[in-house]
Design a protein around this nucleic acid. Structure first.
Lengths: 347, 347
DNA sequence: TTGTGAGGAGCGAAGACCACT
DNA sequence: TAGTGGTCTTCGCTCCTCACA
């Protein structure tokens, strides 16, 4: 049963036309700002629209225009700060450009789930898809996508013709963090990486590795987490046992928090015994019990760039930019400091 | 000129019908699982659909069915953990019921922005709206909503006929937290509340106040924050100066983190000098340098309840439940403990 | 001519109704 | 008379064509 009608309880364009005494086409012109309508008629039409509470029917418009103005977003791990905030800034960017988002957040990260989700998005008539998933998962091709363009900031997707890849140069952040710790006088820097399937994790790791290499420092083994505070804690327990680790760069703030928790538990002081640098500058990083030194990124810029290029592809233009200048900034707080002067002997 | 078409590059139902050699109507029947189609024909139609890569046109379907199956979500403060995770679980709940979400996240919280956002959602043809905003903002009425039903877990909305309010009994969490601290032996409990405009903040505060009252304890003044770690820190600096505050219940984990930061900065130990209890159990609460005692809630249940009732309203049924049994659990970690024995000597 | 408006076709799918077995 | 399946119309809107100032 149910009324089920989304808006305007059956008031349609022709009703507006009739109350004003013009043709339906004229009302259409007014709504779409088309020319050839006298100002006086325009005003009367607008008044009638207001009075009747008329709202255009999106479905009818989409049908005839062959456009839905819907962009799909495929996201995983939306419980994490980064992915979640990216979805919201994508939504914001989309709305600014006259599009809306269709969200598909994957509960599990499997190629099969991904295919299903893509099917779902296409069924909803999306005109483009943004991938916010680790790109090892993305086993897609043009056949599956039905020619719909895609965009991502997580790295190139194979076998897809119409795609825009935004290189957000995450490595730069890794360099900043690592160099900061070296500048403080640490011999070398350990790294709690994110999952290597994530492009962002690989790039941050690469920035770390290259900085160490350039400084001619020895590179400790990479410890891989999964972005969670828990994984940071678990890896941190290993690190806490060895006293040659005086500086650690964690791939995100939550892993850094877990690390600090493990260090505190082991009785190691921050930054006295171990300096910690995170990545993201989540709002609460500043207010940890030891305020966290971290890398701040303007994620909104990346989202806007991703959306711009995708919209360009959708509208048949060549995407303007593929490299976006992202402002990355080191925010120094209390979790990083110079190493303790080494006495000649270990404890 | 872009192609702009969302799916299936122009393959429409008639094409499927022609390749099989049946009428368009028969294909429609197969797709919608309608009766009166021989299994053999059904199989051939399905095969043709697969082969041609046919995808139903959502706009056309929506037009003729007078249904969009879109539910709007109006959210603010999506940078916070709570609102963000609620949006995602709403999305999940909606998808399970065959609906999709249209998201409108408000950058600023003003009644004017809210009206604009509602207009936007209605223009997108939403069949119902979920409010995830502090309810003091919600100045709406049926005229503005055009008769679209609403649902919320943030409290009753005045002047709206078709609405479902889910009472998630947040007060219970406040009681659990406060009682826990009293049970540990604290004389009384301070409260860092959330912004009083939020129903959730008021309820948690009420749970705290009533527990103190029932125990016959003196009630310290309420300190109001804004959910952020920063506000927790600022209020915490005030609290850190007075040594009669031995136990604090913060309205969410992030305020609790800020509080712990301020306490640590002031040299007060946790839980030795001050016990802290949060609310939400964000994933990193367990891995703070002093792991945070907090209240865990199954937010997903609330979201599902909100969506169920809204869908019931949309489909013209009477909503089944308005009160939902939410599992709230005290998670005891290291940030709470017994008070230090007072030097003057207890009785 | 140059605005300014009306009328009609059709987008893709589903429902009412009819025509065969 | 059931079960099948086809035909025609309709949803609300935009574009095209054409009529009138």
């Amino acid at each position: 049963m149910g009324t089920g009608r989304g808006a305007g309880r059956g008031v349609v364009m022709v009703d507006v036309a009739r109350t004003v005494g013009v043709s339906q086409k004229t009302v259409s012109r007014v709504i779409n700002g088309a020319p050839h309508v006298r100002p006086e008629i325009r005003a009367r039409v607008l008044a009638a629209i207001e009075e009747l509470g008329y709202r255009p029917n999106v479905a009818a418009r989409a049908l005839v225009m062959q456009r839905t103005h819907v962009i799909g977003v495929l996201a995983v791990a939306t419980s994490l700060f980064g992915p979640a905030s990216r979805v919201f800034s994508l939504e914001h960017a989309a709305r600014q450009r006259g599009y809306e988002l269709a969200l598909a957040s994957l509960p599990e990260v499997s190629p099969d789930e991904l295919r299903r989700a893509i099917h779902g998005l296409l069924a909803r008539g999306v005109e483009g898809i943004v991938f916010e998933v680790p790109n090892h998962l993305i086993e897609v091709d043009d056949a599956l996508l039905g020619g719909v363009p895609v965009a991502t900031s997580v790295g190139q997707i194979p076998h897809v013709a119409r795609q825009a890849v935004i290189d957000s140069s995450q490595a730069e952040g890794g360099r900043l963090a690592t160099q900061h710790l070296l500048d403080l006088g640490h011999q070398t820097v350990w790294h709690l990486a994110g999952p290597p399937e994530w492009d962002a994790a690989r790039e941050r790791c690469e920035g770390w590795a290259s900085t160490l290499a350039k400084a001619g420092r020895q590179r400790p083994p990479v410890l891989y987490g999964d972005w969670s505070a828990r994984s940071g804690y678990q890896l941190g327990r290993q690190l806490a046992e060895r006293d040659d680790a005086t500086a650690v760069f964690a791939a995100n703030d939550h892993q850094a928090m877990g690390l600090m928790c493990a260090l505190a538990e082991a009785g190691r002081s921050i930054p006295g015994d171990v300096s910690v640098v995170g990545f993201d500058d989540v709002p609460e990083a500043e207010f940890q019990m030891v305020p966290l030194t971290t890398i701040r990124t303007d994620e909104a810029i990346i989202s806007h760039a991703v959306l711009s290029t995708l919209v360009a592809l959708i509208e048949g233009r060549e995407p303007a930019l593929e490299q976006v200048e992202v402002h990355r900034e080191l925010v120094v707080r209390r979790s990083s400091g110079p190493p303790r002067p080494t006495p000649s002997g270990p404890p």
